[in-house]
Design a protein around this nucleic acid. Structure first.
Lengths: 250, 250
DNA sequence: TTCTACGGACGAACAGCGTTCGTGTCAAGT
DNA sequence: ACTTGACACGAACGCTGTTCGTCCGTAGAA
């Protein structure tokens, strides 16, 4: 049916057995940035579990094998994804007089950015971030502490501990978001149901075996995630403060 | 060859096409406890990633479907596994005079038990433990804090934060163990290699863009996991102490 | 201009995962 | 002796990360 010579780019209707990629071709040239972009879109839309090599590839109109030319494995993709997100964190200029507030500001900022991107907080818990933006955060947080007069060794370890705290709390928070999303309920509905279950659980305990727990069930249940995050941060900062006052001797 | 009537349980050598389960039958009756036992064995031997429904079933000489009669899904199995492990934690009797030390003792105890069982610490990070042994820990830790004069609301939140800290640090630690195990190297070899990489990374940074990081690279790298865990614990306890001293007003 | 290399793209496959369905079997209750 | 119901479980579904070998389009060499 089709004549042979029409020039190489003429609109030949159908030599279909050799036409390999008609639907997905003439795309963008598939770079690492593009892959991370796509992964970020999937993350925000459907959560970290949806960020699979296959899913990202599908979103780009190709197969999973194509990604491995630009990203050595999934772990690297997640590192790149985390660092992309970390770029959204804005940081203050160190001010010696306000170091306590600034430590909290940085912590809140990181927490907020992580929480804004589904359960991305699971990633830094499974590795030590070494991307350029992670370095930027490290540098600033360390700078704030040093400016505040925290001894260098204390400040260095404190950076590590504060990171661990922020990441783990953000991860814990993201679990609830994930479960709420999976349940299909409204956030308020879900939270009410969850709190109700916990309340029932605590108050139904035998008071003789768990006296403190039953007696203080209201305190154990009071406060939302934000309150508890703030409280833990306050604990850490107060602890650090004790090293500044007595900086001369331990 | 085989005669027909020998009684139903006689030793018939081979009607092989209908003999369904000759290798794996006449086993233990496959209870929930037995499943958790087996999962624990796999966990200790090969890590949490090896604890799959298929693997546990295989270890019991059966298929994965058989487990679902005793355990509703993998999440429940992991909860049971965690609570089994939590039973190994031994707890002190609250002593008002030693509350700071006791908080640390409990934290260390939990940390140690979690670390003794591969990367089981990943489990409590993904859920709120509600098993009987988790309750036992809650009750005791809360009791220690209250005995020490920590205000109830502070104590209640502190339990939550201390848990989060212990779990997340134990998890972070288990990552290194897992990677070391996967690398096939000796622990010392692996650690040396890892520290060397980090050292090289820090010292190769541009000092003008990351002055604090480069200047304090030794402090950032000093201390092993145990030192850092202890330091974070000290921060938390010092923070709590500040609430005890000024218990009257905030 | 023609040929040759080379690197990116990618279809297919491998081994594993959690979970469900339908069937099979055995023991206890009627 | 027969029925009932709980447990056991083979097979399958749809998913995962990763690798192999092959294809193609282009850039450089002849």
């Amino acid at each position: 049916m089709a004549t042979v010579d029409q020039g190489p780019d003429a609109e030949i209707p159908a030599p279909p057995w050799k036409r390999r990629r008609p639907p997905a071709k003439a795309r963008q040239p598939l770079s690492q940035d593009l892959i991370v972009d796509t992964a970020l879109r999937v993350l925000d839309a459907e959560g970290l579990d949806a960020v699979s090599m296959r899913r990202v590839a599908q979103e780009l109109g190709t197969g999973p094998a194509s990604l491995y030319a630009h990203v050595s494995n999934k772990e690297e993709l997640l590192e790149l994804l985390l660092d992309r997100v970390s770029g959204e964190v804005s940081l203050p200029e160190p001010d010696p007089a306000r170091w306590r507030e600034q430590v909290k500001e940085v912590a809140h900022e990181i927490h907020q950015v992580l929480s804004a991107h589904a359960d991305i907080a699971r990633v830094p818990l499974g590795m030590i971030p070494t991307g350029p933006n992670a370095l930027r955060l490290n540098e600033r947080l360390l700078g704030v502490l040093l400016a505040g007069g925290v001894p260098p060794q204390i400040a260095a370890w404190a950076v590590d501990r504060i990171y661990l705290y922020v990441n783990s709390d953000a991860y814990e928070g993201s679990i609830h978001v994930t479960k709420q999303r999976a349940s299909g309920l409204e956030p308020a509905e879900y939270m009410a149901g969850f709190l109700g279950q916990v309340r029932e659980f605590f108050t139904s305990l035998p008071a003789d075996r768990f006296p403190a727990t039953v007696r203080h069930a209201p305190e154990l249940m009071s406060g939302d995630g934000e309150d508890r995050f703030e409280f833990g941060l306050e604990l850490l900062v107060r602890g650090l403060e004790s090293y500044v006052r007595g900086a001369g001797k331990d």
